[in-house]
Amino acid sequence: MAEERQRVPHKQQYERHEVMMLNRQSLQVTGVMNVESFDSHEFILQTAYGLLAIRGENLHIKTLSLENGVVAIEGMIYDMGYFDEGLSPAEKAKGFFGKLFR
């Protein structure tokens, strides 16, 4: 089962993907290919390893450089996780709690 969960990154210019968080208030993500959506409560970032959802309060972009694949976010971060790419856009929009309370 562990072998099934391993993901092979898509080939693109960013070979490295890192997530660095400081005190749940500052987050820097490298290897970002695109910002799918964002607001003050949720960011959806497309990375080489799948879609990364970051949820929190008063979230805002501190740094955005898609040429370098870097996004820095500030605010109170509550959770983050990766989506499977096989999900439909409607399932992606529901998020964790939408799936939990079906």
Score class of each variant (00 low, 15 high):
residue 74 E to R: 07
residue 61 I to A: 01
residue 77 I to D: 00
residue 65 S to P: 05
residue 51 L to H: 07
residue 8 V to R: 08
residue 101 F to G: 11
residue 41 H to F: 13
residue 58 N to T: 05
residue 100 L to Q: 10
residue 98 G to D: 03
residue 42 E to D: 08
residue 86 G to C: 12
residue 66 L to N: 10
residue 15 E to K: 10
residue 68 N to E: 15
residue 10 H to K: 11
residue 74 E to D: 11
residue 96 F to K: 13
residue 99 K to T: 13
residue 50 G to P: 00
residue 37 S to T: 07
residue 53 A to V: 05
residue 44 I to R: 11
residue 87 L to V: 14
residue 18 E to N: 05
residue 19 V to W: 00
residue 15 E to G: 12
residue 97 F to E: 15
residue 24 R to N: 12
residue 6 Q to N: 02
residue 39 D to M: 00
residue 52 L to F: 13
residue 91 E to H: 06
residue 28 Q to R: 13
residue 99 K to W: 15
residue 23 N to T: 00
residue 5 R to D: 12
residue 65 S to I: 01
residue 20 M to G: 07
residue 5 R to T: 12
residue 15 E to A: 10
residue 73 I to A: 03
residue 2 A to S: 13
residue 64 L to H: 05
residue 91 E to V: 12
residue 89 P to L: 15
residue 75 G to N: 03
residue 34 N to F: 00
residue 36 E to L: 15
residue 31 G to I: 04
residue 90 A to I: 05
residue 50 G to A: 01
residue 15 E to Q: 13
residue 45 L to W: 09
residue 25 Q to I: 04
residue 100 L to P: 07
residue 49 Y to H: 11
residue 93 A to K: 11
residue 4 E to R: 12
residue 19 V to K: 05
residue 8 V to K: 09
residue 30 T to C: 04
residue 75 G to H: 04
residue 32 V to E: 03
residue 85 E to Y: 01
residue 28 Q to Y: 07
residue 49 Y to R: 08
residue 75 G to I: 02
residue 77 I to S: 00
residue 71 V to C: 01
residue 3 E to C: 07
residue 49 Y to D: 06
residue 45 L to F: 10
residue 5 R to H: 05
residue 64 L to C: 11
residue 62 K to H: 12
residue 40 S to E: 14
residue 9 P to V: 10
residue 71 V to M: 03
residue 24 R to Y: 14
residue 20 M to E: 06
residue 54 I to W: 07
residue 28 Q to D: 03
residue 15 E to D: 15
residue 49 Y to L: 13
residue 43 F to Q: 02
residue 47 T to E: 01
residue 33 M to H: 08
residue 60 H to Y: 02
residue 44 I to K: 09
residue 43 F to C: 04
residue 18 E to D: 09
residue 85 E to I: 02
residue 31 G to Y: 12
residue 92 K to E: 10
residue 13 Q to F: 05
residue 6 Q to M: 06
residue 67 E to M: 09
residue 36 E to R: 14
residue 102 R to Y: 13
residue 65 S to L: 00
residue 40 S to I: 04
residue 24 R to E: 09
residue 61 I to Y: 07
residue 91 E to T: 12
residue 34 N to E: 15
residue 2 A to W: 13
residue 84 D to S: 13
residue 27 L to Y: 02
residue 88 S to W: 14
residue 56 G to D: 04
residue 16 R to N: 15
residue 65 S to F: 01
residue 3 E to G: 04
residue 79 D to Q: 02
residue 41 H to T: 10
residue 41 H to M: 04
residue 45 L to K: 00
residue 38 F to D: 04
residue 52 L to E: 03
residue 20 M to A: 13
residue 31 G to V: 05
residue 99 K to H: 15
residue 58 N to D: 08
residue 97 F to L: 14
residue 55 R to F: 02
residue 56 G to H: 04
residue 76 M to N: 09
residue 28 Q to W: 01
residue 24 R to V: 03
residue 52 L to T: 02
residue 57 E to M: 02
residue 59 L to N: 03
residue 53 A to G: 07
residue 71 V to A: 02
residue 100 L to E: 06
residue 76 M to E: 12
residue 72 A to V: 10
residue 16 R to E: 15
residue 4 E to K: 15
residue 51 L to Q: 09
residue 65 S to V: 07
residue 50 G to K: 00
residue 94 K to P: 09
residue 44 I to D: 08
residue 23 N to C: 08
residue 76 M to H: 06
residue 17 H to Y: 09
